[in-house]
């Protein structure tokens, strides 16, 4: 689904992303972990076409991201950490808007997503102004908006920030279902325990890959009890307490 080779992004003399090579398959949940400034958001922005790579190659479904940006944009859904919804629009109007800019007929799209709306408990709040919704609802609505055009590839940039543990677990249940339907999920997160939901993760530091693999294998390999410990270990941060 996604293939990158020697991916580099430079801002002036600062290398935000340095030689990242990835091969991500269909139906995979792939996680980006790292501190702020480690390069994960920059990488995700390049993969989603928001930023142009300085050098290296990104191919999505065997299409070059720079040359075929228009075609690729139809294939991807994007949910940002700010849950980009218009607060003064009703929930349904937000969905309508995103269907509109992807040029998909709204009614069929809504019909297709009905089970998801039901599962998320969103059906009853469609006519509520988005600003009046609790954080957890905004997050789920934002995911539904990103799925209006049924993209095979979904980017989630810190999708659970500000959402409580209960809602987080339910959210991940849905992400799992989506992957099971064959959608590829790319996710970045601050919560190390969430890395456990991913099939594979990459841990980044200073723009480089410091670890890549299945969470269970990585934990065994580095002799860590949990992801937090593993994370700090591979980054070389010493703290026994966490």
């Amino acid at each position: 689904m996604i293939h990158t080779s020697h991916l580099v992004k430079q801002f002036g003399s600062f290398k935000a992303v340095d030689e990242i090579n990835l091969e991500i398959g269909r139906g995979e949940i792939f996680g980006f972990l790292g501190a702020n400034g480690a390069g994960k958001t920059t990488t995700i922005r390049m993969l989603s076409g928001l930023l142009k790579p300085s050098s290296g190659e990104i191919r999505i479904d065997d299409l070059d991201i720079v040359r075929h940006s228009e075609q690729i944009k139809h294939k991807l859904g994007y949910m940002s950490q700010k849950f980009s919804l218009y607060p003064d629009l009703k929930a349904v109007e937000n969905l309508q808007f995103y269907a509109g800019i992807y040029r998909v007929p709204f009614e069929p799209a809504l019909k297709r997503l009905e089970p998801l709306l039901e599962q998320f408990g969103l059906s009853s709040i469609l006519n509520t102004l988005t600003q009046d919704l609790p954080m957890g609802y905004k997050q789920r609505l934002s995911l539904v908006a990103a799925l209006m055009h049924d993209p095979p590839l979904v980017f989630l940039d810190e999708p659970t920030s500000g959402v409580d543990p209960q809602a987080r677990r339910e959210f991940w249940q849905v992400i799992n279902d989506l992957a099971n339907l064959g959608k590829t999920i790319i996710v970045s997160t601050h919560f190390m325990d969430e890395a456990e939901y991913c099939h594979r993760v990459i841990i980044m530091q200073d723009g480089r890959e410091v670890a890549l693999g299945n969470p269970a294998e990585l934990k065994t390999k580095h002799g860590s009890a949990n992801m937090q410990e593993l994370f700090l270990k591979v980054l070389g941060v010493s703290d026994a307490k966490l």
Binding site: A35, H190, L232, L242
Partner: peptide
């Protein structure tokens, strides 16, 4: 530590201890 990245969170808690 709301919205603070994991490494900074660890450092912050070190300060608290």
């Amino acid at each position: 530590t709301f919205g603070v990245d994991p490494v900074s969170r660890v450092e912050f808690w070190q300060l608290l201890h």
